[in-house]
Amino acid sequence: MAEMSYADGILEGFRYLLATYPKCFTIGQGLWSPWYVGTTMKDLDKEFGKERVIDTPVSELATTGAAIGASLHGYRPIVIHPRMDFMLLASDPIVNQAAKWRHMLGGAVSPAVTIRSIINRGGEQGAQHSQALHAWYAHIPGLRVVMPATPADARDLLISATLCDDPVIYIDDRWCYEWTDDVGPIEEQPLEVQGPRVLRQGEDVTIAAAGYSTRLALDAAEALAASGLSAEVIDVRVLNPFDPEPIVRSVEKTGRFAAIDGGWSTCGFSAELLATVAEKVAPQKLKAPSVRITLPDAPAPTSKALEDVYYPDDRLIAERLRALAA
């Protein structure tokens, strides 16, 4: 085991893939000046060459479509969208092409592309530099969607995603980059056997989250413990195809459920989590109505005064969870 940051986990994932798989390449804007993506791709172009670490014109649509095309002919491309907001320009290749080709062409086609999308918010960046749109992509059959929360997953889910025969949206979060953890050696795991994981055991309330929100959930669990309440934290990890069973089992035990999500409430991923509990947990096992903690249904503001209330903070989360557990 060695201590590794989340950002280094991503970098290690790239280095492993590029060193191990000659058919793997990465393509996107800013890859020859990778401050675009923090330190997560530092010097990859120097180590693996500009033919496999490809910087592109300012063309999200064509870059993503081209990566899909290359994946149809034996390659394992990883497309980089340094901000999720700009990835909307590539919606057609992602939603209409990558997600659909296998099914609509009879099952023999593998758009084995990985699309890395970064949530990069805060710092008064505003409405078009802040979005967390994981729920949109998780809505689409044919896409796999993963959100690593830990340094180990930052590395290992990138590897699983790239080796998967299906298109995968891999979403990391700049607010996670500094986190460190003890991480073991790389073991390749098929993505299709990955799913939600219990990160902390508890008895009184179940909290489910993905990506950065998982860290908020762990912090909240810690705060609740100080009040004598025991929270179970489930890191969703894989948003689509979504396996509800670990959440169902947990809520059957605790009787209380909260979802924390970095997206909006309406039709957001938190809605899917609450629907799971509503559909699959018998009402007599529930001790309280479920709770979701999300962004307010408004675009991200720039003004500091508004930004401070836009993103849910530890105090607010702990307050709402204490009310739920009471």
């Binding site: 064509a62 149809l72 034996g74």
Partner: peptide
């Protein structure tokens, strides 16, 4: 764009 990617491959 998909064909451009097939050409890249």
């Amino acid at each position: 764009p998909v064909a451009v990617g097939a050409a890249l491959a």
